[in-house]
Design a protein around this nucleic acid. Structure first.
Length: 651
DNA sequence: AGACTCACG
DNA sequence: ACGTACGTGAGTCTC
């Protein structure tokens, strides 16, 4: 039942709406959320927010007194206001502080408008604040505190004692919550609607908070700090009830400064190399384009899937294989084009065009534009609160999807270079997900294969095709590799048949063979599924949770999706737990042993370092030991290390 | 803003 | 009848 306003309740059952299954499930979910929300609205209390004793700090004396209060409390919730969301460009506009609900302080530092009150000089203010900000005995609480710490670091303030990030806490409690931003969390956990940025800045939106009257900015900023503090106590309790406090405190919070250093260090690229490669690609693209348009007999935009569909399937009358996902047109993806390439030259040229065009625009041109003028390096952002499984993600630019699978793509990695006197070192976990899988399954054949250092795909080939490992051909190994990954992802016989180009029945036989030989795998899958059906969530090695509300859905498709995610998440998520732990330990040891080696990148199962040449031996040993020994499992973890002058050579 | 395509683990 | 393997981010086109 859904009630709108306080008027007559309208009773609608979902079945009245005659919707298709997937939509029906989605709607059911929205209905559940609405009902839940109205309950929260009814019962939640937020009396403390009505006090709103927010004070401006304009005099040195006031700041000194605030600092005393903070030191006495040993804790402060803070929020910086800046001119940009990008920490590399952001300039400080002000900082708000809150040590107890109801009272907060706003320290304006960069407000510029006609008739502005005199503010404390930013150098003087930071000089005084350093005492508490750089002291880890004073706990710092914040929402996405990595950002504040990065901005402050650019002002020479190295924030210490970051113990509670509400965004990260929310993510640990439920990684698939819609959003983890402050507005959403305030609404979700406190039923409180925050002042919006637009409301505060009004028509000055583009000029930023610095152009806003500081009394108004105070209301906005202090509210952020206060709400964050209120959220902290709620989230702290939740972390304990979900048995996730250790994961939060000892892993995710300790990872923040590590990630921060990686982002701020950045990685050097060879701009001239990228520019030259881009020009070569531009030439090739225009030549391919000319030939395609010649063969098509008319001008059209090759980058438009719509126009391309018309040319291929209506003008040239090539047989179309499938429609696009939303059925808005013909699919022209790589799978379709590869099939068509045997009977016509245009699809063949298109494949080449697509590859080159992708590499040029997404990597070569984009990366050159993202070199920071001050550092001369590329600085990515690692997001710690995005993925459903516990992995990091990388953006602006994404450095976790730099090409490697094709020859031209691999070339791009040569443009990521080490600084003078340094080498790039790459350390990657070998087969980490399969090893984690072996660990959980305790399957004797899998355990033995990893214990003895056998090639795991060859071993699987030997099992599935019932041969001596020495008789497994490269083709068989390729198929076995596909099966191994397919198992982790929950692939069915239809997809396997398609991928391997074999009849469905044969694919089914391979899978049957697999489960027959690896008994532990079948048991593990069943155990995971029975647990998730009961609990509604799956967990990783470090107790990270992922809820799967569709696991008992009436809709078969949604249920199957949830089941595959349930199988995959403990594997992918445990691998993520392990590498995060290793990152913390490596950073700690590099510092303790006074090495200048810098961790630069994380690519899910790989870490990239910039190593002074003379540290190569000690760094290699340290990194390998920490990664392989991060957490004893039922199988050994193996790390491959390579180095060179660039990322291409380090692979 | 959504759709399509494609880069990675 | 149709789709059918997990997890991401970005460039481009289209509306």
């Amino acid at each position: 039942m859904v009630t709108i306003d306080n008027s007559v309740p309208i009773e609608i059952t979902i079945d009245d709406l005659r919707l298709q299954s997937p939509r029906k499930d989605k709607l059911a979910q929205i209905f559940r959320e609405l009902e839940f929300k109205s309950l929260v609205d009814k019962f939640s209390e937020h009396a403390e927010l009505s006090k709103k004793d927010y004070r401006l700090i304009l005099k040195l004396e006031e700041l000194r007194s605030l600092i005393k209060t903070i030191r006495k409390k040993g804790m402060v919730c803070l929020d910086t206001e800046t001119t940009s969301k990008d920490y590399l460009m952001a300039e400080l506009v002000g900082i708000s502080f809150c040590v107890e609900p109801g009272i907060a302080y706003y320290l304006p530092l960069g407000h510029i408008y006609n008739g502005v009150n005199p503010q404390i000089d930013i150098g003087d203010a930071l000089g005084l604040l350093k005492d508490i900000l750089c002291d880890d005995r004073v706990e710092k609480i914040g929402q996405n505190i990595k950002y504040d710490a990065e901005v402050l670091a650019r002002y020479g303030i190295h924030l210490k004692g970051m113990t509670f990030d509400t965004m990260v806490a929310s993510y640990v409690i439920d990684p698939t919550l819609r959003q983890h931003n402050l507005d959403y969390l305030a609404q979700h956990y406190l039923s409180y609607k925050m002042l919006s940025y637009e409301e505060v800045t009004g028509h000055n939106k583009d000029k930023g908070l610095g152009a806003v009257d500081m009394d108004k900015a105070k209301e906005y900023s202090c509210e952020d700090a206060e709400i964050t503090l209120l959220l902290k106590s709620i989230l702290e309790e939740k972390l304990k009830t979900t048995d996730n406090y250790t994961l939060f405190q000892d892993l995710e919070m300790r990872l923040i400064p590590v990630i921060m250093d990686m982002e701020m260090t950045g990685i050097r690229i060879d701009v001239d190399f990228f520019k030259a490669m881009s020009e070569a690609f531009a030439d090739e693209l225009s030549s391919i384009e000319g030939r395609i348009i010649d063969l098509a007999g008319e001008e059209f935009n090759i980058n438009s899937p719509q126009q391309l569909g018309y040319i291929l399937f209506e003008k040239l009358k090539l047989p179309w294989k499938k429609k696009t996902r939303k059925k808005t047109g013909y699919s022209t993806d790589v799978e379709v084009l590869t099939e068509l390439a045997v009977q016509h030259e245009v699809p063949n040229l298109l494949l080449r065009f697509r590859t080159i065009s992708k590499l040029k625009s997404t990597y070569l041109d984009a990366l050159v534009n993202m070199v920071n003028p001050l550092t001369g390096r590329i600085h990515t952002s690692y997001n710690q609160t995005v993925t459903a499984t516990g992995r990091l993600s990388s953006s602006n630019p994404n450095l976790q999807n730099i090409p490697i699978r094709t020859e031209e793509g691999r070339e791009i990695r040569k443009g990521f270079i080490a600084d003078e006197g340094h080498l790039l070192l790459s350390a990657d976990y070998s087969q980490i997900e399969l090893r984690v899988f072996a660990h959980y399954s305790e399957d004797p054949v899998l355990l033995q294969a990893f214990e003895s250092g056998e090639d795991i795909h060859t071993r699987t080939g030997a099992e599935v095709f019932d041969l001596d490992p020495r008789m497994v051909t490269p083709e068989m190994r390729r198929m076995a590799k596909m099966i191994n990954f397919g198992i982790i992802y929950g692939m069915g016989p239809i997809k396997l048949a398609k991928e391997l180009g074999i009849p469905k029945k044969v694919a089914q036989a391979y899978l049957d063979n697999y489960y027959e030989r690896y008994k532990g795998v079948k048991d593990l899958k069943e155990e995971i599924l029975s647990r998730v059906r009961q609990n509604g969530y799956v967990t990783t090695l470090l107790k990270r949770r992922r809820y799967l509300p569709n696991i008992n859905s009436d809709n078969g498709n949604l249920r199957a999706e949830a089941e595959r995610a349930a199988i995959n998440t403990p594997i992918q998520g445990t691998a993520a737990d392990l590498i995060k732990m290793a990152m913390i330990n490596i950073a700690e040891r590099l510092r303790r042993e006074n090495l200048s080696t810098k961790m630069l990148l994380q690519v899910h199962d790989e870490l990239v370092f910039e190593v002074p040449q003379e540290e190569l031996n000690s760094a290699t040993r340290l990194i390998k030991d920490e990664m392989e020994g991060v957490y004893p499992l039922n199988i050994p973890l193996k790390v491959d290390i390579n180095w060179g002058n660039n990322w291409g050579e380090a692979h």
